[in-house]
């Protein structure tokens, strides 16, 4: 089955890393010297891992992608922390959105049997979790909660949109 084996997951890993680091790293919009809008694709990788992947491995793979992104962003540990969090939170997102008759045993999060609506909700949870956790780790103190909230409000919708577009491109191929 396409998009479900180790090779396509590895390809996605490299593709998302490449896009994030060389393309979307350049995107940052803001006002008055402060930047509020970023685009993060990292959670897409975690979201697209097959459903049967053992949960500790989901956490571990997410961490690996996060730490790779960190190496290019020069924020060692921050992306890794957020990606690890998303990797851990994926099981709860899946549990929350579980269809009435459960997931099919062999499926990756496949558009065909889960539908666009399911995908959008799923990605929103992943991207939202990622951004909130990432900005919290970046600020590193509850004192800056305003920054965290504003950055999340700007970043989540745009990142979500880009993630949906990316998934639409990836799903039939790898």
């Amino acid at each position: 089955m396409r998009g479900n084996d180790a090779i396509s997951n590895a390809l996605r890993f490299l593709l998302i890393l490449f896009l994030q680091v060389f393309l979307f790293r350049q995107v940052s919009l803001g006002l008055g010297g402060k930047e509020y809008l970023f685009i993060y694709l990292v959670p897409v990788f975690t979201a697209l891992l097959p459903l049967r992947t053992p949960r500790p491995l989901v956490v571990l793979f997410s961490f690996l992608l996060g730490i790779s992104v960190d190496l290019f962003y020069e924020t060692l540990g921050v992306h890794a922390a957020a990606a690890t969090f998303v990797g851990y939170a994926r099981q709860f997102a899946l549990g929350l959105l579980e269809p009435r008759d459960g997931y099919k045993a062999k499926s990756s999060p496949e558009g065909k049997d889960l539908g666009n609506r399911w995908w959008m909700q799923y990605l929103l949870l992943m991207v939202g979790g990622y951004c909130v956790f990432f900005f919290s780790m970046e600020a590193f103190s509850p004192v800056y909660w305003r920054d965290i909230v504003v950055k999340s409000l700007f970043t989540i919708p745009v990142s979500w949109l880009f993630c949906i577009i990316l998934v639409t491109f990836l799903r039939p191929r790898i």
Binding site: L60, V78, A81, F85, M137
Partner: peptide, 13 residues
């Protein structure tokens, strides 16, 4: 795994 990796991340941060 999550807790262990988070601790590692905190250390790195």
């Amino acid at each position: 795994t999550f807790v262990g990796l988070q601790l590692l991340c905190l250390y790195l941060i």
